[in-house]
């Protein structure tokens, strides 16, 4: 066992340039992986904050008695998704409108009757928020007898939803691409190392070495290359994080971005695993 470890270490040092180059390449691939995950994470973060601002305006029929309004309000409040319901009476809506218009209040001149409907301003529990759930809630509310009309940012909601889905797909695509790229890089390097030692391996076989004995040093080497790549990946990813999050915190659009840096700690493990995978593929079946 110690001997195999020694063989691996010797080979790592002997082939230090190709190994270093491979590790650096893997480091950069892992940087791209970090950037991808960083982006997806922040988009998820932004769209997670949307439900806090998201409200549904439920316009009520004009002729409801106050009893009916109270009943309707508690019914809406009873819905699983609903966080709170704020009742806005006709009069309140009108005065709000007036104060909103301020100097331009003349547009309301001549309007004697209050043309507005009373309404509920419905806020959604953000932990339960999803586009599908909100839409099915709206479908249910639409059929209630006290409801005149419902207004919500449908287009906006759909946009957020599809943007998020698209970003996730792009994120997964990039992740897979990088995973395959890293496996391929290790695969090629190990293939080269293997061919360089072909004659030596031939002799090992003739002397009675098992496939495991032949594979072990390469697996160690591939694992170490991947792990080192992961360490490079940490350094590069942290540099990226530092530039964006620390130095960019005053820049609009970038300033709000954040990321749990602890995530970078998994990069060497990812590198190690992909290193082993690539090596296994490169070695294939050992024939005697």
């Amino acid at each position: 066992m110690m001997y195999l470890l020694g063989l691996a270490i010797k080979s790592i040092l002997r082939e230090k340039w190709i190994n270093l180059l491979t590790s650096i390449t893997i480091g950069f691939s892992l940087l791209i992986l970090s950037m991808t995950i960083f982006t997806v994470y922040n988009i998820e973060g932004v769209s997670d904050k949307l439900p806090e601002k998201f409200t549904i305006m439920v316009y009520l029929k004009d002729d409801l008695s106050s009893d009916e309004i109270i009943k309707a309000q508690s019914q809406v409040e009873g819905k699983e998704l609903v966080k709170e319901v704020l009742y806005i009476s006709k009069e309140k809506a009108f005065s709000e409108l007036k104060s909103n218009l301020k100097g331009s209040a003349f547009v309301l001149e001549g309007i004697e009757d209050n043309p507005l409907s009373p309404s509920f301003e419905v806020k959604i529990k953000k932990e339960l928020f999803s586009v599908e759930k909100v839409e099915s809630l709206i479908d249910i509310l639409q059929d209630e007898p006290y409801v005149e009309d419902i207004d919500y940012g449908r287009g906006f909601l759909d946009f957020v939803h599809s943007f998020r889905t698209a970003m996730r797909a792009v994120g997964i695509f990039f992740t897979l691409l990088i995973v395959f790229a890293i496996i391929f890089v290790i695969y090629s390097t190990v293939k080269i190392l293997f061919y360089r030692r072909k004659d030596e391996i031939e002799t090992y076989k003739l002397l009675g070495a098992t496939a495991g004995f032949i594979r072990a040093p390469f697996l160690i080497e591939g694992g170490v290359i991947g792990f080192l790549g992961g360490l490079f990946g940490i350094a590069e990813s942290y540099a990226f994080y530092y530039v964006i999050v620390r130095l960019g915190h005053n820049i609009p659009l970038i300033g709000f971005m954040d990321f749990p840096v602890q995530f970078f700690a998994v990069l060497p493990v990812v590198g190690l695993m992909l290193g082993l995978f690539g090596t296994i593929f490169a070695l294939g079946r050992i024939r005697f």
Binding site: L207, G208, F288
Partner: peptide
């Protein structure tokens, strides 16, 4: 195939 190494261990060449 995987027994070949063990056969070879009985043979010095």
């Amino acid at each position: 195939e995987k027994s070949i190494p063990f056969l070879r261990r009985n043979i010095g060449v």
